[in-house]
Write a protein that binds this DNA or RNA. Structure first.
Lengths: 241, 241
DNA sequence: CGTTGACTTGATGCATCTCAAATTAGGTGG
DNA sequence: CCACCTAATTTGAGATGCATCAAGTCAACG
C-alpha cells in the first residue's frame, strides 16, 4: 500500500522501522527509505521503566524520540509542589520540543515505555532537507494543541464526576485497538495520584467518583487497574460530551 | 536591519505591510518582497467590532488572517452552555487553523480588532513554495501550545485569587509597549464575564478577587477597565509565579 | 505474618458557587 | 447638563462541592 511513495520499497526499509507505528502515523512517515536507513543507524531503542524521567531539568536534553509503546505524561510543577499533568502521549507520538527546550515541562514514563531515540542535531538537519518532516511536526503540534484546549474546557468547567468520566473516556478511546466503538477493555496507565494531577482534583475525590461510576455500572474495575466499559456512550454521557 | 534578507529592499514592500507587526514578528516575516506584493493584492483590511465573530460554526471558514491590533478570544462551548476561553490572541498572531477547521472553537473579537485577511487557498499555495512559512506557523503553534499548557496549570491547580492575579499579570505583560519591567498601565481587553470564562470561575468570584487586589494596593482600577500596576513583581507573587 | 504502598471510605471545614439585591457606568433623548 | 434606562459590576447571605484530615481496607512482597 506504500507503493506509490517514492523510494520506499519495503526491502530498503530498516527492519526495526518496518513494524513501527511512527512510520505510518508518526513523523517518520515523511522520510524516504534512505533517510530511514541513515536515521536508523544512529537511533537507539530504549526501555524506560515506569516512573523514570524522559525529559526534565537535568538530563537527556539533546535528543528526540518516538514513542514505540507505553504512555508518557507531561507534567508542570509549581514552586510549592502543586503539579498538573498537561498532556499524555501515546505511540507513535513524537517526544521533544523542536527549537526550544525550556518550557518548564518534564516528561515521565507513566507506564513502561519503549522509545526510539536519536540525536537532536540529526533530525534538525533532516528537517532542513525535508519540508515534509516539518509538516508532520506541525500536524502533531496542532493535534496536541487541540487536545490541550479540549482539556482546558474539562479543567475549567466540568464537575469532578464529569472530569473523571472524561478521563476514563479519553483512555478508553486511546487504548482501543479493537474496532468495537461501543465497548472497551483496558489497563489504566495512570495511578490515582496521576489521574488527580491530570484532572486538577485530589486522590480522594477521584476515588469517590470512580466508585460512583462502578456502583452505577458505567465501568467495572478489577485489581484497581483493569477496566471494562460495557457502553461507551453511557460513559460519554457522564463526561458531558 | 533587514538588509541581509534576500529580496526585501523596503522600497519593494507594499505600503500596508511596511508598518505591520506581522512582517517582523509574525508569519509574513517568512515572505519575500514579491510574495508580500502578491499576497497584499488579494488581502483585505477589516475592522471587526467588539463582540463580532471571526471564526465560528457558520461563516468565513475559507480565509486566514493576521491580527493587526486588538484582542481575539478563542472559546469552547459545551452543549449546556458552559463555556471556557482557551486562548487569547494579540497582534501579530496568525488567525485560523491550517489543514483543518473543525476543532469546535469559535474566535470572537474581545475588543475592536483590525485584521489583514486573505483567502485560504493562496496561503496554502505559498506554504508549498516556501518551507520557511510552515516553519513560522510551527513556531506560533508551539508558542500557543506552551501558553495553553501554562494555563492548564492555572486552571487545574491555582486558587481563585491566584487565577485572577495570573490573568492580570498575563494582560499586563502583553500590553506593555513601554520597556518598564516593573510597572504597567493598560485597558482590560475583557469583561468580567470573559475573565470568568477564561479562569473557570464565576463573575462574582472574579469581582471579589479584583476588589481584594485593589484593597491591597496591588492594582488600581478606574472606570472598571483602566488598570495600573505599580509593582509587577507584587502581582507575580499573588499569581504564584 | 508483619510491612509497605496504593486505594477507599468517613467526618468535617472551607472556598467557591448560587441566588438576590444594591451600586455604578454608559448611552440616549430631552 | 440632566433624567432616565439598560447593562455591567459589586456586594451580601446562604448553600454546596470538593479539599482536608484521619482511619480503614486490600494486595503484593519479604
Amino acid at each position: 500500500m506504500d507503493a506509490h511513495r517514492k523510494d520506499t520499497r519495503s526491502s530498503d526499509i530498516p527492519g526495526l522501522c518496518r513494524a513501527c507505528e511512527a512510520r505510518h502515523r508518526g513523523v517518520c512517515g515523511a522520510l524516504s527509505a534512505s533517510q530511514l536507513v541513515s536515521l536508523n543507524k544512529i537511533s537507539t531503542r530504549k526501555l524506560i521503566g515506569s516512573g523514570a524521567e524522559l525529559i526534565g531539568e537535568n538530563q537527556e536534553t539533546n535528543s528526540y524520540a518516538n514513542i514505540i509503546s507505553g504512555v508518557v505524561k507531561l507534567t508542570k510543577m509549581m514552586a510549592d509542589g502543586r503539579q498538573q499533568i498537561v498532556g499524555l502521549q501515546f505511540a507513535p507520538d513524537f517526544l521533544g520540543r523542536p527549537f526550544r527546550m525550556d518550557s518548564g515541562i518534564t516528561a515521565d514514563a507513566a507506564t513502561d515505555v519503549n522509545v526510539c531515540s536519536f540525536p537532536k542535531a540529526v533530525l534538525e538537519r533532516m528537517i532542513k532537507e525535508t519540508p515534509e518532516l516539518e509538516h508532520k511536526l506541525l500536524e502533531q503540534t496542532l493535534k496536541e494543541l487541540d487536545e490541550a484546549r479540549d482539556w482546558m474546557l474539562t479543567l475549567g468547567r466540568k464537575t469532578a464526576s464529569e472530569k473523571v468520566a472524561s478521563f476514563m473516556y479519553l483512555i478508553a478511546t486511546h487504548s482501543n485497538p479493537e474496532a468495537d466503538p461501543d465497548s472497551a477493555r483496558f489497563q489504566l496507565p495512570l495511578t490515582r495520584s496521576d489521574i488527580a494531577d491530570f484532572l486538577g482534583l485530589t486522590i480522594e475525590t477521584v476515588s469517590r467518583q470512580l466508585t460512583r461510576l462502578r456502583k452505577d455500572n458505567v465501568v467495572h474495575i478489577s485489581n484497581n487497574r483493569h477496566v471494562e466499559v460495557p457502553d461507551l456512550s453511557a460513559l460519554a454521557e457522564r463526561a458531558a460530551l
